[in-house]
Design a protein around this nucleic acid. Structure first.
Lengths: 336, 336
DNA sequence: TTGTATGCGTTATCAA
DNA sequence: TTGATAACGCATACAA
């Protein structure tokens, strides 16, 4: 019962036992059965099973120059968004026989760079990136060496990379129209600091869309910290006394904080104020009456990222960068 | 702008440019500076930076027989538990310079076996396993070949593996005492099918502990499907009319379904019935009045798994299997 | 202090 | 049909 790792069976051992050369074994492993006799083939099948042989993928990758490994970097693994994305990626990778090396950048561009480099040291074939931002130059530099990237959910300004995202701008228009139709007179957009492209994009979209529907400048509320939500919410209430109003949260985390702030201030929705926002998370149906939310096809985003990566890897290495947008849906609940 | 992956700089290129042999470069990479002149050392430093050289970890691992990669298999990546665990593992791995290969078994023992094998093909140095169960024999077989496992959160009956878990049995006693103290007369344990060791352990603990505190047999309610929660909850209400009663949910998912069922049945807590359970998740403070819950140190579980793995890998390969239990805390909110 | 030669477990190019 | 043999990029025993 020696605890030192038992030497794994190698191709040489199999060759010896089967009485052929390792070349033949290698051919067998790669399905090139036309280069061996029926008899050899059968013998090899038996020996491999008998010895429990499994090829060493490190050696394979070293030789073949591809690892069938994909790097995945998420900006915040603790966000409810990430696991769904990862599941989409993981499930799809399984179908293609790829493995995934996962890292969490904590929304830190420096960490992101570090992980990209580290993954390249592991010879990943490509990287699916839910970017923390601020790395455009670096990414372009790396991509120039032929490393394929697919951006997940967070696009960059430059249209140089394959990107898979949700059509959140389009759905925002719809949700605002719906609110207008429900009789709301003023909708405040609540979001945290503008530190990633998704937030920036949504904020810009709100700013540009709102006037077309409500015929006034868009009320945007930038939050600094968690504690801030209560202060800002109170301000929003005061500034719009007498009006029918609603909060549009930029994402699920903001929604949560806004609801918490409402409870602390003793506010009821939809009576005192309506609430809605991006991200439809499990618990949102539980909060008194339920929260109206934009449901995003996160799982599909993950899947499409992998599909696109496979396309680039196996079909067309130098395809034009493609921007894939997946439609969202609005889940109307009691909060609006 | 050729899209074919540019050939990476290798140790040979560096050696040529620095005017030394690749042996010296290799020594440099491994910090064996005593085997080279000050001058060589400086030159190499310069050349490496200049050429942007980074060692190929595949080649390194192939030669050195260890990859500094850890496999991590979670049973359900979409559970709120997993991301926290992964973050604990990931953060800690970073400190030790290890990378992680992550897979999601979907609570399927066959998938789990497949992933373990696949990770071994990638030459991971060890595997942190949040097991789906039913693989004890297989795991023992693999472990016999010297592959170190650390079980995360879900122990096995056999005490053959390092295990890191939360002290949920102890906290269960405390929570039951608290409920008793609050005047509850009957507490029903709600859980889904007994498909993993955590559930089984908690169920057994409840069954054994309950009588000591409430002086009657433990009321345990096994749920088959999501739809079932409502039926079972109604039954629980009817069977205990007139008594002050509470639901003890076996985990956060059950808690969520129970709350949903309560809302559908028009029940209020804590007036009609108290609610509490394992897992303290973000949103639980939001549901009217807040949910009483057991907070588990999941992040620390992840960290301790890695620490234990490092110990086994670098300090004592044949240490006795160790069972590490981390304490939980009770967060009392309005629901009880 | 430095270098030569060999091997890690594969795949690929020859030649037989 | 098969098999030597040379890579892949790096680490190391052994020489110098």
């Amino acid at each position: 019962m020696d605890k030192a790792r038992a030497k794994r069976v190698t191709i040489v051992d199999v060759a010896a036992k089967a009485g052929v050369s390792k070349t033949t074994i290698s051919r067998y492993l790669n399905g090139k059965f036309e280069y061996m006799s029926e008899k050899s083939r059968e013998r090899i099948t038996g020996v491999i099973k008998e010895m429990g042989y499994r090829p060493n993928n490190l050696a394979r990758s070293l030789k073949s120059q591809h690892s069938r490994m994909l790097g995945v970097i998420v900006s915040d693994i603790t966000s409810p968004f990430s696991p769904i994305l990862l599941k989409g990626i993981s499930d799809c990778c399984e179908r293609y026989g790829y493995r995934i090396l996962i890292a969490n950048s904590d929304d830190d561009p420096a960490k992101e760079r570090e992980y990209i480099l580290s993954m390249l040291d592991q010879q990943v074939d490509g990287i699916i990136l839910n970017t923390a931002g601020k790395n455009t130059d670096f990414l372009m530099e790396v991509a120039k060496n032929g490393v394929p990237f697919v951006l997940a959910d967070r696009p960059l300004e430059v249209k140089l990379f394959d990107t898979v995202r949700t059509a959140d701008q389009e759905i925002m228009v719809e949700l605002l129209r719906y609110l207008k139709g429900e009789g709301y007179e003023r909708v405040g957009f609540f979001l945290e600091s503008l530190t990633n492209t998704t937030r920036i994009r949504r904020c810009n979209a709100f700013r540009d869309t709102y006037p077309e529907i409500f015929h006034e400048a868009a009320p945007i509320y930038l939050l600094d910290s968690q504690a801030d939500h209560e202060t800002v919410l109170r301000r929003f209430m005061l500034e719009n006394e007498g009006k029918r109003k609603a909060v549009y949260a930029a994402n699920g985390v903001v929604t949560m904080h806004v609801v918490k702030a409402m409870q602390n201030l003793g506010l009821q929705f939809p009576a005192d104020i309506g609430v809605c926002g991006f991200d439809d998370w499990d618990w949102m149906s539980l909060v008194s009456g339920g929260l109206t939310a934009v449901k995003q096809p996160t799982y599909r985003v993950g899947r499409e990222c992998v599909k696109r990566m496979m396309h680039r890897l196996h079909r067309n290495k130098s395809a034009m960068p493609k921007n894939i947008e997946l439609p969202c849906t609005i889940i109307v609940r009691g909060s609006t």
